[in-house]
Design a protein around this nucleic acid. Structure first.
Lengths: 243, 243
DNA sequence: CGAGCGCTTGACCGGCGTCAACACCCGTGG
DNA sequence: CCACGGGTGTTGACGCCGGTCAAGCGCTCG
């Protein structure tokens, strides 16, 4: 760690090195799942492995795009700035998801992307993607899958999280934000962010969340009221549906 | 027209012939915009040119997919059936839009697709798309664009049409549904469908719409209250934003 | 220890959902 | 031709959910 002294102690964004995609532990989950040895020979530009601290901006809406991103670890919110000045969180992406696909079409990003917690992402240069699309044959399927996933989650967030009472929405979000490997725990965000997702006011989110806690369905497991243990999963699912 | 007598007088769905894509008048707007002469040589399966009457079902959610669709004329709604039994309209697609892209990934459709008015669509067999992806190089860009458009409108419908007061939403929808070639007229749907889009009750939609008419911003131009002339475009835009 | 930020809780009120009655259009059958 | 009936749109009355404003609390950091 020779260069340590020249790097800020708490950088918002830091360079962790050049990624070795072929050996990547989560490769099967991501864009490069189907690539062959030959395809990897086409890798010329380096793929940067980046770290973002919570609240750090990955990219901004309208910004000229340099690449697309794969999330190795963490959570990133896509924020849309409305003409009237308010903001809406369109979706939250997690491990294995791809961020900024839209850059492949217009060369610019459609949203602000902001880390919700400390996150690690790989930046894949646009040229590499275009190169692989032209000369390799195996990226196509992966791209289609990621596009499909984007539309699918977009529609899901619309249909699930913007329907029904405040209670239903909060319950739905809690279910959606369970950690994939530990379905009894759910990791949420600031009340304001949750409001921007659910189309509710922060106070309302707080109320409904507390109500779920008082009823013993959730139990808060940290000081900041972001992390909850799901004590009664069935009750939570019922709350998300109707009564 | 030899077979005319054997065809029902008012078929919900009818076959209009085999499309000649190379000569298609709206080709520049659609998926095949960038295809070359050579690419068209790869067309083996026929592309059916179909007509659907208003309210006819183009395909159903979960149904095994035979192809993807390009809209030549008309409007098609994508309907999502929620677990609790209710339905949400996720978006409405129009001339030049592609319906059912998701079939390229999973082989099934993610929504019900229903014609909102009499419509004409071309059905492109899945094999043809896969074939062109493998052997032609020029479809890739078109597919990317259509995927991008799908995500973009999905997010737009979420952000624009599910935010703000009932009045703002109705105004927003009226703006979004202007005919592209005649920006002074807008074509809407049943109050129930509008409610399923805006996440409002039919009565509320009716009220707000009437209110816009009473204020002279809109003028109804048909008996069924589906078509409106926009008398004060500026006022409508202001209504969509804030006051 | 104090300042500041975010979360929580309370009080109040307005917008929208709910239920119900009525108007209007259109197709059907007498 | 008119009478009838069903479906859809419109309008009213009323109650409740959630927005708004404001105060208090607890954590974190300087």
């Amino acid at each position: 760690m020779i260069m340590t002294t020249s790097i800020p102690i708490h950088p918002e964004r830091s360079w962790r090195g050049t990624a070795d995609c072929q050996a990547c532990t989560i490769r099967k989950a991501v864009l490069f799942a189907d690539l062959s040895e030959d395809d990897f020979a086409l890798f010329h530009a380096p793929i940067d492995d980046l770290a973002f601290r919570s609240q750090a901006v990955v990219f901004r809406q309208e910004e000229k795009a340099l690449g697309i991103f794969t999330i190795r670890k963490g959570m990133i919110k896509l924020v849309r700035n409305m003409p009237n000045g308010s903001t809406r969180i369109v979706r939250v992406l997690r491990d294995g998801d791809v961020v900024g696909l839209e850059a492949l079409v217009g060369g610019a990003y459609d949203y602000d992307a902001v880390a919700l917690e400390d996150s690690e992402v790989c930046r894949i240069p646009l040229e590499l993607i275009h190169n692989l699309s032209q000369n390799g044959k195996n990226l196509h399927k992966g791209l289609m899958q990621k596009w499909h996933q984007a539309v699918s989650t977009a529609d899901g967030w619309l249909a699930d999280l913007n329907t029904g009472t405040a209670r239903q929405r909060v319950a739905h979000l809690a279910l959606k934000m369970r950690s994939p490997n530990d379905l009894d725990n759910t990791l949420l965000f600031s009340r304001q962010d949750m409001g921007a997702i659910l189309n509710l006011q922060p106070e309302t989110v707080s109320r409904e969340l507390r109500s779920l806690v008082r009823q013993g369905i959730l139990r808060q497991t940290d000081a900041k009221a972001r992390q909850f243990f799901i004590q009664l999963p069935n009750a939570l699912e019922r709350a998300a549906l109707d009564c």
